[in-house]
Design a protein around this nucleic acid. Sequence first.
DNA 1: TTGTAGGCGTTATCAA
DNA 2: TTGATAACGCCTACAA
Lengths: 351, 351
Amino acid sequence: MTRRPRPASAPPRATIADVAAAAGVHASTVSRALNPATRGMVTDAVAARIAEIAQRLGWQPSTLAAGLRTRRSRTIGILVPDLVNPVFPPIVRAAESRLAEAGYATLIANTDMDPAREALLIERMAAQMVDGLMLASAARGSGAIELCRRWSIPTVLINRRLPGAGLSAVINDDGRGMALAVRHLLALGHRRIAHLGGPAGVSTATDRRTGFRAALRAAGLPVEAPIVAAEAYTEEAGRRAMQSLLAGPAFTAVAVANDMLCLGAYDALAAAGLDVAGDVSVTGFNDMPFVDRIAPPLTTVRIQHAEMGRRGAEQLLAEMADPDTARRETRLEPELVIRASTAPPGRGSGA
Amino acid sequence: MTRRPRPASAPPRATIADVAAAAGVHASTVSRALNPATRGMVTDAVAARIAEIAQRLGWQPSTLAAGLRTRRSRTIGILVPDLVNPVFPPIVRAAESRLAEAGYATLIANTDMDPAREALLIERMAAQMVDGLMLASAARGSGAIELCRRWSIPTVLINRRLPGAGLSAVINDDGRGMALAVRHLLALGHRRIAHLGGPAGVSTATDRRTGFRAALRAAGLPVEAPIVAAEAYTEEAGRRAMQSLLAGPAFTAVAVANDMLCLGAYDALAAAGLDVAGDVSVTGFNDMPFVDRIAPPLTTVRIQHAEMGRRGAEQLLAEMADPDTARRETRLEPELVIRASTAPPGRGSGA
DNA sequence: TTGTAGGCGTTATCAA
DNA sequence: TTGATAACGCCTACAA
């Protein structure tokens, strides 16, 4: 005894055959009339009548059946490390909107930064025959890229790039963004500036660290500034990283790789009896929601969340439409937002 | 000239027929061996060999083909008003995790609280043959429910209920939550308490307003407290609603229907020269991320975000497995989190 | 336990 | 312009 998927009371959904019968034409004619791409092959009068009948019967195309035939599911997958990280919702949302406009549904999954889980999810997306993939979870050695290649799934990276992967990416200009933050600290008079960096293997972390060093060098400062890498982009990791910075050489300002890390950093500073801005200036990265309302409001680098999602979707649509579309790395311009977490040095003692 | 979906270089993906040929058995045997549910029908030795060959050929089941046959897509749709509202990501994430565990992929879409868009999305989900739907966007008069019924899509409401819809819902006990907040304010000594409510037609708004009134009544206070309803759960709406509260009778505390509204309320109070806690105590609802770090940290009602997503998924899975599963309204227990936005009255002048 | 055959709903190709 | 036919990949009675 198998359970029937739909209650017996519900009428089965109308198919093209039903419409054809009602219209007194062949199913192929109905298919042509109802498919925008082939509507032109059919007499206007017939097409109109078919459309009317389809409407009356409540016909809906079955993406499954169409997809089986055409080998496209009109579905796009988006993989994010963790949807709860506030950086991602605006990106995902913008991408979803653009894709919906183009008639695509959006499959979302969280990788938890677990390569095994990520691989599983990609396999599953491949099984679902997604037409394209947007990866916000790119990291060195994840194997994701070769899976996408193996299943020939058009793929675009967002937020993070992966040098050598040969994939399009829509990212922030992380180096420039970090330079904006560092130059701001220098302008305030800071000379002993530390860097609280992101986790290894992630482009946002390496690009921002590189940008940090370059900005110091450009200012003629010694580059052997205190640098610590957090193990992940989390509050807790930020707390621990800040603790280890505080155990090292003194500094009056710290350029942090990510706003989430800043929250933990704030805690660690408070625990050490230090005042943000007063004793240690702090800059973040991302301008994620509500960092303008924490105490003190965070000076940070604003990224173009929505634009990133939109442009990523755009690029993916282009590559799906024409596989020969040139791969490109789009770097979005970041912008410094100055708030109250930065101030000239010397008001307090530094750290 | 039609464009081929996959580059000529990529080998076509293996099908059951390929595996069958390689194994020297019939395709149906392969199907049985590879499908966990029917594995038992096949000799262990044969099953093992088939599995090995499938693995070697990189075979992946095609959800499309299977779904066409079985009429289930192993896909669930989730509709949220706006993924950028921080209440939703934790819910969605937990649901996605649970559904992924059960082998379902998750389709996500934003309704923007636009009934027309919502209807379109549901139609599209129906076309995608989603096996079930989770609706976080329920509102009076949306038409969503009848669409789900029409397409016989098992549906569970989350975060909001819809009286009379006959659908399961996993929600907060909004009345109790609001009562917790009001009792806290009463205990602090407040007597003139206002309510900044949510938008009309949404159960969270009406249930919290009802809870507010009931709590005042239970305390023997007059129920004609100042009450204003915001037009939406947004900062801007919160600002305007607080402004109109301030234009009315005086109060020393305000119980707000939602944290997002509180942010706008904070602004309006500041603009009026009033101190949160000092002049007017403020309570929120949701305990959304980071309200513990705003200034002053918000006293609010914590809801079980993740549990809501998990339980919603659980209920949906149950109803999909057995349509006769009893519909149920699950109310999750909220919890008051006391922070610095509430204080005894009288330190300042009130409003 | 395995093979056979037919069909899920749509679209592509060919013929009329 | 329309109709007939087959095929997409898988599942499942039924027969062997």
